[in-house]
Design a protein around this nucleic acid. Structure first.
Length: 834
RNA sequence: GCGGGCGUGGCGGAAUGGUAGACGCAACGGACUUAAAAUCCGUAGGGCCUUAGGCUCGUGGGGGUUCGAGUCCCCCCGCCCGUACCA
């Protein structure tokens, strides 16, 4: 009995694929094209199991589509800019560039050992000038078309390290290195006008029928279109404050006006009022994340200014500076209706403001309930003068109409979506190609001078942006007037890099970002695969960037990703020592059925199954696993054990089972004897499997395809020798080829077939063999199964009913009584209602 | 806080509103072997009834719709993802 030797087979076939350029995509092929893409990796150091899972899924689809006669583009590259490289520079005294490039070399070699059907000729890394230089050109295109602007915005500021912190670097309100309390600070930064596209980004979602509903819903909520009323309150200090509300119907329930801490009115007051200034200073403490802002205690400061109610000028509302009002949404000011908004409710409770109910839904809400929390549901207006008796929708219309007639407000649409701030005060990113001149202002770097290359001679011994303190790099002459000027030292958000890499894969000329016609023939990406954590930001930014290019005439593609699949994480058990240290799987051993440390034998506690992470030490490095079991077993395992959209738990047993299956599959080829007899049930199962596996792969339901292949192998092993059996063995290798490509090539060659199995066509299905002639009918009484019987497929309802009524179990349950009702579902079941 | 998702045997999971637990892992019994590994055959959701077989409970919890609910609706619990400077 022969054994499949993965170690030699993997290397041999990988070499042949590479030499023959088997997976190079052809820009000029007449075949139908397909673009399969997995989210490109950040080169963090080594490949992890999440990568293996992600790239194996795309690989199976790629190989399957090639077998279906398609010209498939399946490229790979590196999302190579970002913070970890700078952290490594600080900790290990290495240059971010050399750290990143070494990681890429390591990870490229690791990926190649998985036998992925990738077109490596299109490989790119975003940290190289031949990528980011073109990105700078595209940025300038957007700049010329008015889609880039500069404005103040808030960042996390570490007052000790004197540096900007990413949200991730703020731990419990403190800087991760200095431990200092983080403050909010305003900086002038570059923004892209994504809000100009809010409407089309929202409408476009309805065209994405091959995206998961959950992602479309998340994006819809993120864009957050809402209709409402924008209007002005007259203030007792002679000024005005403009507010926006989505609930103008509740205007008679308002009991205060809230303004953001950085609202101009608040700043003005702070100039003369030290208490107000102190309150605003207090609001500045803490980070900038929505989660932090919205969970903090609701605080307000009574400015002693009063606002006149628009429908009753004698009715005055206190104006508070409130820490839960956001300057970025609407107008930075709101009117508070405690009875019908939970945040306003809590605020009113705290500051003793009236809670006036103006929407009633009859008697459904008990009075004490209404006291406990805000009511946000539908209902009829009460306590609201001319609005009384109207429903919420009509009341909204009525108030907007009166506001517009009175000239003090108008109906508006506002979006939750904010413009995209792309400035980062960091070194390891794409330099923003702008020069600041005292005379000319912000001047774009002429395209002829691109790329603006990052200087190599930088130091990371102190926090902050090395570009900003570089002795020469930032000093340039103004491209417009020639006078000494200052280069922009901010770099671009790395999400910009990942917003167009899929275009560069499709077409990557050296003299421009892409060739329009070539890129358009590949795009959109037919199947995009990646983690659900990118459901909003990356996918929305890439959609925006693509639409922006379309608007300025660079690329005639509306949506970058026609199909999207979001995969789950790879998890593993966690282990802790008796004294509470995390232990890696390699540090423990099973002894007498309990887990102990292999160094010393101290007992180990098994913790929860969690996402593989360095901090919990529950990672498994794929490379030694590939060494031990071969690429095909690893591929088979990551495909087999869980539905791809759910989390996959890595287990030692699982990979061993996969390895055994690979060997089992291989052993089938020892039994390819020539026979002439026919085995109809096996023929049927084979063709059902061909059809079923195809459907499962197309739907990316790899675990189901795997189960079907197991069943077929089981049946082949049990079947007596026959021509059908030999044919099934020859065919199953084609079905398994996308998943276990090395074994498939080896078997293909051993069977004396010409060429590569990678180029072979998917087997044909005989439709006649898909139909069963006999079916099992479930016999139910009152919906409970009492028996099953065989019946001819397509049997008449009356016959099935008679058969069911004659069934002994049914007769017993009926006890001689006549059935009340009989439900017959042809070819499925008969349900007798007793 | 807000938005989205998930929850089925010991474990991973399968199931167009129609036979819950396919398939795999682990386990157990047996065969082969001097022995082990590998391989092969077989058993298996819980409880109950003496058996053939049957009854009953069972898809996070509670309610509902339906002849019939893992699947649809309402409420609740737990966990996960995102929350705009992690990628």
């Amino acid at each position: 009995m022969s054994r499949f030797n993965a170690l030699t087979a993997d290397a041999a076939w990988q070499k042949i694929w590479e030499e023959r350029q088997t997976f190079a995509a052809d820009d000029h092929s007449p075949k139908p094209k397909s673009y399969v893409l997995e989210m490109f990796p950040y080169p963090s150091g080594r490949i992890h199991m999440g990568h293996v899972r992600n790239y194996t899924m795309g690989d199976v689809l790629t190989r399957y589509r090639r077998m279906r006669g398609m010209n498939v583009l399946h490229p790979m590259g590196w999302d190579a800019f970002g913070m970890p490289a700078e952290n490594a520079a600080m900790e290990k005294k290495v240059h971010p560039g050399s750290w990143t490039r070494e990681n890429i070399a390591t990870m490229r070699a690791q990926l190649k050992r998985l036998g992925l059907a990738l077109d490596w000729s299109r490989e790119l890394a975003t940290c190289e000038p031949d990528y980011y230089g073109h990105e700078q050109a595209l940025f300038l295109d957007l700049f010329e078309h008015g889609l880039v602007y500069r404005k103040e915005s808030t960042v996390n500021w570490d007052p000790v390290d004197m540096t900007v912190l990413a949200n991730e670097q703020v731990i419990d309100g403190r800087g991760w290195r200095s431990g200092a309390l983080v403050e909010k600070k305003k900086l002038n930064q570059w923004f892209l006008k994504i809000t100009d596209f809010a409407d089309e980004l929202l409408d476009g979602l309805s065209t994405l029928d091959k995206w998961p509903d959950k992602v479309r819903l998340m994006q819809e909520n993120w864009i957050g279109k809402s209709e409402g009323l924008q209007f002005r309150f007259k203030l007792t200090n002679g000024g005005e404050v403009e507010v926006f509300t989505t609930r103008p119907d509740t205007i008679f329930g308002s009991s205060f006006v809230g303004i953001a801490a950085d609202h101009p009115i608040a700043r003005k007051i702070a100039e003369t009022n030290p208490d107000a200034a102190a309150f605003i200073a207090q609001c500045k403490l803490g980070g900038t994340t929505a989660a932090e802002l919205e969970t903090q205690e609701k605080l307000g400061f009574d400015t002693s200014i009063r606002a006149a109610h628009p429908f009753d000028p004698a009715w005055e509302l206190p104006v508070y500076i409130a820490n839960f009002v956001l300057m970025d949404y609407g107008t930075g000011a709101v009117f508070g209706v405690p009875a019908h908004d939970q945040r306003d409710f809590e605020f009113a409770r705290k500051y003793g403001l009236p809670i006036r109910r103006v929407v009633s839904d009859g008697d459904k809400i008990a009075p004490e309930f209404a006291e406990a929390e805000a009511y946000t549901g539908p209902g009829t207006l009460v306590n609201s003068h001319f609005l009384d008796g109207l429903d919420v929708a009509d009341a909204k219309r009525e108030v907007i109409q009166r506001a517009e007639a009175g000239g003090w407000g108008k109906g508006t649409t506002v979006w939750r979506l904010r413009d995209w701030g792309v400035s980062r005060q960091r070194y390891w990113g794409t330099p923003i190609p702008i020069v600041h001149c005292e005379v000319c202002g912000a001047v774009p770097v002429p395209k002829k001078q691109l790329p603006v290359v990052l200087p190599e001679d930088v130091s990371f011994d102190i926090p902050g942006n090395p570009l900003d303190r570089h002795p020469t790099w930032k000093h340039v002459d103004c491209p417009q007037c020639g006078k000494p000027a200052r280069r922009e030292t901010d770099t671009l958000d790395t999400f910009v890099d990942s917003s167009w890499y899929f275009i560069r894969f499709a077409s990557g000329p050296s003299d421009k970002p892409f060739d329009k016609a070539v890129a358009e023939q590949w795009l959109p990406v037919n199947q995009y695969i990646g983690g659900v954590e990118h459901a909003i930001l990356h996918l929305l930014y890439a959609r925006f960037w693509t639409r922006a290019l379309k608007r300025i005439g660079k690329l005639d593609v509306a949506e970058p990703f026609a199909g999207l699949f979001t995969q789950g994480m790879v998890t593993h058990e966690t282990y802790k020592s008796a004294d509470g240290r995390w232990l890696s799987p390699g540090e423990i051993v099973r002894r007498d059925d309990i887990l102990v440390e292999n160094d010393g034998g101290a007992p180990v506690t098994v913790g929860r199954i969690e996402k593989m992470s360095k901090s919990k030490k529950n990672t498994v490095d794929p490379e030694p696993i590939v060494d031990q079991y071969g690429a095909d077993a690893v591929r088979w395992f990551v495909l087999s054990d869980s539905p791809p959209e759910r989390d996959l738990e890595w287990t030692e047993n699982g990979i061993e089972g996969a390895w055994r299956f690979v060997q089992r599959l291989w052993r089938l080829f020892d039994q390819l004897d020539a026979w002439e007899s026919e085995d109809k049930p096996l023929d049927r199962l084979l063709h059902q499997t061909i059809a079923g596996v195809a459907v499962d792969i197309e739907g990316l339901q790899f675990n189901k395809a795997v189960a079907k292949l197991y069943s077929l192998v089981n049946a082949i092993e049990k079947a007596k020798p026959s021509a059908s059996r030999a044919s099934a063995i020859r065919t199953i290798i084609l079905l398994a080829a996308p998943m276990t490509p090395h074994l498939a090539e080896e078997a293909w060659a051993a069977m004396g077939q010409d060429g590569l199995i990678a180029d072979a066509p998917w087997p044909q299905v005989d439709p006649a063999l898909l139909v069963e002639d006999e079916v099992t009918i479930a016999i139910q009484v009152n919906g409970k199964l009492r028996d099953t019987v065989k019946a001819a497929k397509g049997a008449a309802k009356a016959d099935l009913e008679a058969m069911a009524l004659a069934n002994p179990n049914v007769q017993r349950m009926l006890g001689g009584a006549a059935p009340k009702k009989v439900i017959v579902v042809p070819d499925r079941l008969v349900n007798i209602v007793a």
